[in-house]
């Protein structure tokens, strides 16, 4: 009697208890929505056999001396334009090429880059962070200057190359909030007279979801230029060096990512905005920027096989 009773009581909810759910896939995905934030990289790479086509644009100063109504708040100018392709060799490794106008004297930029996911944050907190490495080399095809103090007084081909190495350390704190911190190392084979070839920088960035498809994004980069060199350069050229701050909105439509942003950086490439931002928010030297990214998938063969 006792036995019968207990077994029926058991049966009610034990059906659910008897089910052992497999452990959920532990990797955290979509820490950021795009491989790039505003000025800086994120930890995201694209998936295998995907092609990411991206156009970045930066307009002229909105306010300040060269801004205002006479250049329609910067829309009459473009300080930099970049067209880039990225291809996913695997889910963890992507390779990219890009052409950028380039801001400052070094223009006609050709960039090649590699991005590799080293670590992925897991859901069970065993791995609390994601880490992605980024490396690029950029070549300027601009005509070399004959002024030996110029930033583009290139002697040979080697002088035209700038290397960037970055480590993006990111964490998705909640479905709506992600942050990253990124040390950068920039090596310029040739610089303006009196500047340093090697430069370290530290960036922070974040993303806060406003709605399911719109997010607020911001990033800040602090370069560590030698103080005496900085003072010398600022005195010599009359240009101050500033840290970069970008803030904007990110829209995702499934396949497309749009960014609408404001930044004081004139350049888009890491090889330039980290080392050479001479424009300041406080002087009205911030600008509209936008980017459009579209992803294409090339997994058609797999589609048919399955």
């Amino acid at each position: 009697m006792g036995l019968g009773l207990s077994s029926t009581v058991f049966a009610q909810d034990s059906l659910e208890k008897a089910l052992q759910m497999p452990a959920t896939k532990s990797q955290v995905s979509a820490t950021f929505k795009s491989p790039k934030l505003i000025n800086i990289q994120t930890n995201e790479t694209i998936f295998k056999n995907e092609l990411d086509f991206r156009v970045d644009h930066r307009f002229g100063d909105i306010a300040g001396q060269s801004g205002g109504i006479k250049n329609f708040f910067g829309l009459d100018q473009s300080t930099d334009v970049r067209i880039g392709f990225e291809y996913g060799i695997s889910d963890d490794l992507s390779v990219g090429i890009a052409r950028a106008k380039g801001a400052g004297p070094a223009t006609q930029l050709y960039e090649g880059n590699l991005k590799y996911r080293l670590l992925r944050q897991t859901g069970n907190e065993k791995m609390p962070l994601s880490v992605t490495l980024f490396g690029s080399s950029t070549i300027s095809a601009v005509k070399a200057s004959t002024d030996p103090t110029s930033a583009i007084a290139y002697q040979d081909f080697q002088d035209r190359i700038v290397y960037v190495v970055q480590a993006v350390i990111a964490r998705k704190f909640s479905p709506d909030f992600s942050m990253l911190i990124m040390p950068s190392y920039v090596h310029r084979n040739f610089t303006v007279f009196g500047d340093q070839n090697d430069l370290f920088a530290l960036s922070i960035g974040g993303r806060i979801k406003i709605t399911k498809r719109m997010a607020f994004v911001a990033d800040y980069t602090l370069p560590f230029r030698d103080d005496t060199k900085k003072a010398y350069l600022e005195n010599l050229w009359g240009n101050k060096y500033y840290n970069t701050l970008g803030a904007g909105l990110e829209f995702e439509t499934g396949g497309h990512i749009f960014h609408l942003n404001f930044t004081n950086a004139t350049a888009i490439q890491e090889s330039q905005f980290i080392t050479d931002t001479n424009t300041s928010w406080t002087k009205g030297q911030y600008r509209w920027g936008f980017s459009i990214a579209r992803r294409f998938s090339f997994d058609k063969k797999k589609d048919k096989a399955q």
Partner: peptide, 21 residues
């Protein structure tokens, strides 16, 4: 019972959108 993130898509971006959006 099913874990929603266990669904496998041929296109990984679609999978990400499925789970995220």
């Amino acid at each position: 019972k099913i874990n929603n993130n266990s669904f496998q898509f041929k296109k990984k971006l679609m999978q990400e959108h499925f789970n995220e959006n």
